[in-house]
């Protein structure tokens, strides 16, 4: 009985410890969706002790805005070349 309790405690503790790979996965996922309570907690604990992942988080946030802006179609016109136009017309006949 006692052993199962200890095991269970161990399991819970192990689940609290996430790797950098998982931590960065959660950081990225969080750009698209809300994290669960456990995910948030895991991430927080990890970031508290991990410098590289903390840097990752800052930089991931920094580029996120820029990614969104870059990928948005803003009517910036790129003209078809005459060569492309001719090719298109030819292929459509």
């Amino acid at each position: 009985m006692k052993k199962t309790l200890i095991n269970r405690f161990k399991n819970v503790m192990m689940k609290m410890m996430i790797t950098c790979e998982t931590a960065t996965y959660l950081i990225d996922k969080n750009h698209y969706t809300e994290l669960s309570f456990i995910e948030k907690l895991n991430l927080k604990i990890h970031l508290y002790t991990c410098k590289s992942c903390s840097i990752y988080k800052v930089e991931s946030n920094l580029i996120n805005d820029k990614i969104i802006k870059t990928l948005k179609f803003d009517d910036k016109e790129i003209k078809l070349t005459d060569e492309q136009k001719e090719r298109l017309i030819k292929n459509l006949k």
Partner: peptide
């Protein structure tokens, strides 16, 4: 013909859109 007119009128717009994607 239709395509030529479309190309003339909206070609650059559609192309820009496609490039952005």
């Amino acid at each position: 013909t239709n395509p030529e007119m479309w190309l003339h009128k909206y070609g650059d717009y559609l192309y820009s859109y496609a490039i952005s994607r």
